[in-house]
Amino acid sequence: MRTRHFLLLKRSCAVLQKDLRVEFRTRYAYNTLMMFAVTVLVTVSFSVGGMILESEIAAALLWIILFFSAMAGLSRTFVQEEESGTVVALKLAADPEPVYLGKLLFNIVVLFSIAAVVVPLFLIMLNLSVAMPLSFVLVVLLGCLGLAGASTILAAIVAKAAVKGALLTVLAFPVLLPLLIGAISATRSTLAGVPLEVLRPDLGLLLFYNGMMVTASLLLFDYVWNE
């Protein structure tokens, strides 16, 4: 049993490694995505101007930026496999579960690296101070984990559709809404500073949502991946 899990992990990491290598050889997708995120951020910051924002509005804006950045970039891994025709080779080389987990890990890496740039810039440009820095980081990480967790399988669905453009956003929004509600509420609390007990239900919601989505995706991915 243990060796099976170890093998799954090893194979997932191999898929992740492959995706990272493909990405770093060209880098244009990643660069575009990063510029997209920064552009959205600057648009928000510019339109807000010099206003002092309440933590409620700031939290909502932060998650709008992260949501649209994620939607712009996360379908990339699967669409690229379809476009370059490598999808058949990948199907031959690996089982569905390692492919899903590898792509999920890749999406998590991409989102974390975007958040690492966008979130500090957001705090600087909107002149916000965070009352609970550690919890704030935890909430952002959990939120990004959820964005990646729910979007990866949807990205696999979108890659098979005839129209790819805005489809991921349309499909993902209703699925992601519970996550966004929880993340915005938790971010608001950490920006304003509240007792930990107030934050706990939101963190619970985020954790539960992550676990549920990844489990369901693992069960369903086989149906999306194999024709």
Partner: peptide
């Protein structure tokens, strides 16, 4: 697949 995921 989408119907099942979204229902969750």
């Amino acid at each position: 697949v989408y119907a099942i995921l979204a229902f969750l």
